[in-house]
Computed example of a mutant assay.
Amino acid sequence: MLEYLDTIPAGETVRVQASKDMISSTYEIKAGSAEETVNGVLIQDIVSDSPAEVAGLQKGMRIMQMDDVPMRTVYDFRAFMNTTSNGQSVKLLLADNTSKTFEATVQLASHPDEGGQKGFLGVYTSQDEDVMTSLGITVGEFPATSYLSLLKSIPEMLKGTVGWIILLGLPIVGFAGEGFPGFSGMLANFYAPAGWAEPLGIGLFWIANSLLWIGWLNFYVGLFNCLPAVPLDGGHIFKDYTKAFIYWLTKNEEQSLRLSSAVTATFAMLIFMSFVFMVFGPYIVHGF
């Protein structure tokens, strides 16, 4: 999208299709002037024994300019590198974590995947900040790799308390407060089945969604069944333990049965009333 918008002159009208809450709309927006702010391109990693490593470039630095060409986005970086050749010297303007800038000159090597003609710097780059476009909207790169890594890490995290807390609130809170609606919508747009799942196509997301919600609902039904309220299983277990404890104190079977029944009934009523309050409490306070 950023590459396309760079070719749109100021004043030209662009038709944009956008979707929100599964409803698609079409907008006609007149392009303005592109943002002149240059935040640079983040260096995520350095290829070993590459020209970048030889020149002293480090992970976390930003490439601000290459031969006086501003690097606003990763697309600017790719476009510039596509014009380079093996052995070419490139002057870089770099910035570190403190925003201090300095220059470095790098002699490019031969690109290992481009037939030896294209220049090779040896850095992994990313667009870690949103970019303001000429349409007046900001565009950012979706953190697909990070998001997928978080999902993959959940089974391993279940070995500890944190993993279970995340699982409990996943559909409601998500990873960053945005909620996790399942494998649909945004995720279906940014990911595609691969390998053995590729023939399933979009059907894979339907299967994953079904398994997610069936598993999550069963998990919560199981937790609900553990509440100490008769006739739930948790209520019967609570009643038996209460009866055994009272009998240990009183040595009276009839009294322990009567008291344990009263305690269990009280807990059941409190739990029931708490649910009623959660449903109707906001209406009582703020009105219907």
Rank of each mutant, 00 (worst) to 15 (best):
L121E: 02
S85H: 12
T83I: 08
L93Y: 02
L42S: 04
G11R: 01
S19F: 02
E53A: 12
V221A: 09
T138V: 02
C226P: 02
A229Q: 01
S256N: 11
Q127L: 04
P112W: 09
I172S: 13
D6I: 02
N218P: 10
E114C: 02
G195H: 02
V38N: 05
L249Y: 12
S153I: 06
S260P: 13
A176G: 08
S126M: 02
V106T: 01
M64H: 04
F180R: 10
F142W: 12
Y27L: 15
A95D: 11
P143L: 09
M273Y: 11
L93E: 05
M61A: 00
P231T: 04
D233Q: 14
D128R: 02
P193N: 09
V131Q: 01
V74G: 12
P155W: 09
G222P: 03
M132A: 05
D130A: 07
E254K: 13
E253P: 10
D67G: 07
S153D: 15
D128G: 00
A188M: 14
P231Y: 04
L187F: 11
N218F: 06
L170I: 01
S126T: 13
F245L: 14
G140S: 03
A265T: 08
L2N: 10
F80L: 14
V14L: 03
Y27P: 12
V263I: 15
E53V: 10
Q58Y: 11
I8T: 05
K30T: 14
A104G: 04
A10M: 14
D96Q: 07
P155G: 10
M273E: 13
N225T: 00
F275E: 09
L223V: 15
P112H: 11
L270P: 06
F219D: 00
G222F: 14
Y75M: 05
G203F: 15
D130R: 04
G32V: 09
A197R: 05
L168T: 11
D113H: 04
K251T: 04
N39V: 03
D128F: 00
A262I: 13
L212G: 06
D67Q: 09
L204T: 05
E254H: 12
G281F: 04
R62I: 11
F142H: 08
P51Y: 07
V173I: 15
E36V: 14
L167T: 11
S126V: 04
N82G: 09
S19A: 12
H236V: 00
I63C: 05
P155Y: 07
V38W: 06
F275D: 08
M269E: 14
F77N: 03
S110P: 01
K100C: 10
L108W: 06
D233S: 15
K118Y: 08
K30Y: 03
P282C: 08
L150N: 12
A265P: 01
G140I: 03
F120N: 06
T13C: 09
F272N: 14
M269K: 15
A52F: 01
S146D: 12
V106G: 00
G215A: 08
F205Q: 00
F277S: 13
G177K: 10
F219W: 13
G60W: 12
G115W: 09
S149Q: 15
S89E: 11
G115C: 06
L232S: 03
V162R: 15
V74Y: 11
L158Y: 13
S48A: 14
L212V: 04
N189G: 03
